[in-house]
C-alpha cells in the first residue's frame, strides 16, 4: 500500500478553509454581542440600571436634566408586537391549515410562492403603505387626527410576520405523520375535526416556534414602525396613540447624536436590550423546534 500522498496536506488545507467560513457565524454572533456590551458599558457610568429600565421618561437632550428611561419604549415595542401577533397568529395558522389541508395541491403550488412575495416586500415599502393607506384609513374609522399610531404599526408588523408564521406552521402541519390523520378519518371524523383535534395539536410545537420566530421579527423590525407609529416618546396608553419603539428610537437618534457621549452609548444599550430580547425569543423557538424534530425521529 502506498503511503499517504501529498494530497493529504492539500485536503486538510481545504477543510480548514471551509471550517473557517463555518466558524465565522459563531464569531459574528459573538462579535455583535461583545460589541454591544462594550459600547453600552460606558453609558452606565452616568445612568443607573434602575433608571434605565424603570423610568418612563427618555429625554437625553434636555437642557436641565438628561433622562434615560427606557420603559416607555419597551412597553411600546411589546404592545405593537402583541398587537401584531393577535392579528397574525390566527390568520397565519388559518392560511397554513388552508394550504396544508384544504387547498388542492395545484393551488398550493401557486399560492406558496405568492406568500413568499409578501416576505420579499422591503420593510420601508410596508412602512410607506402604512403612511399612505392604513394611516388615513385608521384616522377615518376611529375619527382621529392621524392614523400613525400603535395600531397601524401592529397591522403592518402582522403583515410582515405572516410569511414566517405561515411557512413554518405549514411545514409542521405537513410533518404530522399521515397515519395520525388516516386513523382519525377512519374513525369517521371529518377532515375539519381531524385538522382541529389531531393535526393542529400534533403540530403544535412547530406552530409555537413559528409564532416565536414571527414575534422575534416583529420586535426587531425598524423601518415600518419608524414610519407608521408616530414616534411619540410618551408612555403608551392605547393602540390609537402614537408610540416610539426601541428600534425606531435608535434609528431616529443615532444619526444626530455626537459620538462617544452618554447618549450615544445609551443607544447601543438599547441595541443590547433588543439583541437579548430577540435572542431569547429565537432561542425558545429553537428549543421548541428541536424538541419537536427529535420526537419526529
Amino acid at each position: 500500500m502506498r503511503k499517504k500522498r501529498r494530497s493529504g496536506l492539500k485536503e486538510s488545507a481545504i477543510k480548514a478553509f471551509f471550517f473557517t467560513s463555518g466558524i465565522l457565524a459563531v464569531l459574528v454572533l459573538l462579535g455583535i454581542f461583545l460589541t454591544l456590551v462594550a459600547t453600552s458599558f460606558p453609558a452606565f457610568r452616568e445612568i443607573k440600571l434602575g433608571e434605565f429600565f424603570l423610568n418612563t421618561r427618555w429625554d437625553p437632550t434636555s437642557p436641565e436634566k438628561a433622562e434615560y428611561g427606557l420603559l416607555s419604549m419597551i412597553m411600546s415595542t411589546l404592545m405593537v408586537t402583541a398587537g401584531a401577533l393577535v392579528l397574525a397568529v390566527p390568520i397565519g395558522i388559518g392560511v397554513a391549515a388552508y394550504l396544508s389541508d384544504v387547498a388542492h395541491w395545484r393551488v398550493r403550488e401557486i399560492l406558496k410562492p405568492v406568500v413568499e412575495i409578501l416576505a420579499g416586500i422591503p420593510s420601508v415599502v410596508v412602512g410607506f403603505i402604512g403612511i399612505v393607506l392604513f394611516g388615513p384609513a385608521i384616522a377615518k374609522v376611529f375619527h382621529i387626527g392621524n392614523g400613525l399610531n400603535a395600531l397601524n404599526g401592529s397591522i403592518l408588523l402582522a403583515i410582515m410576520a405572516l410569511p414566517t408564521i405561515i411557512s413554518i406552521s405549514e411545514d409542521s402541519l405537513n410533518a404530522v405523520p399521515r397515519a395520525y390523520s388516516e386513523a382519525s378519518l377512519a374513525l369517521g371524523a371529518s377532515r375539519w375535526q381531524t385538522l382541529v383535534r389531531v393535526k393542529l395539536p400534533a403540530g403544535l410545537s412547530g406552530i409555537i416556534a413559528a409564532v416565536m420566530l414571527g414575534m422575534g421579527r416583529a420586535i426587531g423590525e425598524t423601518m415600518t414602525v419608524l414610519m407608521a407609529t408616530g414616534n411619540a416618546r410618551s408612555f403608551p396608553h392605547g393602540f390609537l396613540e402614537a408610540v416610539r419603539t426601541m428600534t425606531a428610537n435608535i434609528a431616529i437618534e443615532l444619526g444626530e447624536v455626537p459620538y462617544y457621549t452618554t447618549h450615544y452609548y445609551a443607544l447601543f444599550a438599547i441595541g443590547l436590550v433588543l439583541f437579548v430580547m430577540t435572542f431569547a425569543v429565537n432561542l425558545i423557538a429553537d428549543v421548541v423546534l428541536n424538541k419537536y424534530q427529535e420526537r419526529e425521529q
Binding site: 457565524a25 454591544l36 459600547t39 426587531g220
Partner: peptide, 24 residues
Amino acid sequence: LIRLSIRNLSGVPSIVYGLFGVIL
C-alpha cells in the same frame, strides 16, 4: 454551536446589524 449561531444570526434585528457596522 455553529448551527445555533446561524439560526440566531438570522433573528438579530437589522438595526442591530447597523449598530455593529458602525463600530466594526
